[in-house]
Amino acid sequence: MEILMSIVIGILFTCAVYLMLSKSLLRIIIGTGLLSHGAHLLLLTMSGLKTGAAPVLTEGITNYTDPLPQALVLTAIVISFGVTAFFLVLAYRAYQELGTDNMEKMRGTESHD
């Protein structure tokens, strides 16, 4: 399963990077979103995917899945949400100001040079 996940992660990263290198601002943001999904899965995969009980203390169970990567991923998910939201608004405002979402045409408005 881990190897399968590794390949999935690789594909996610490939798509993410390819999108991030494109010209369109929206695609770049989507790329960062994909990138963080890849990173989250990577964190989980790193600790091994041995199936145990969910990391909630239960009578009579000693074999839990690793809680630490889950806590780290939880933090990462929320942070990536904040960052994505920030990027989105940045893109949206840039579009309003500059009238394009093509990165190569963005050269500042006349008033800022």
Binding site: I3, G10, C15, V17, Y18, L21, T45, M46
Partner: peptide, 21 residues
């Protein structure tokens, strides 16, 4: 160019993921 770069990144991540666990 973009495709090559992104495939390299993906490959690196796969390798790292495999060695990390």
């Amino acid at each position: 160019g973009n495709a090559v770069l992104s495939i390299t990144v993906g490959l690196t991540m796969t390798l790292i993921a495999i060695s990390s666990f």
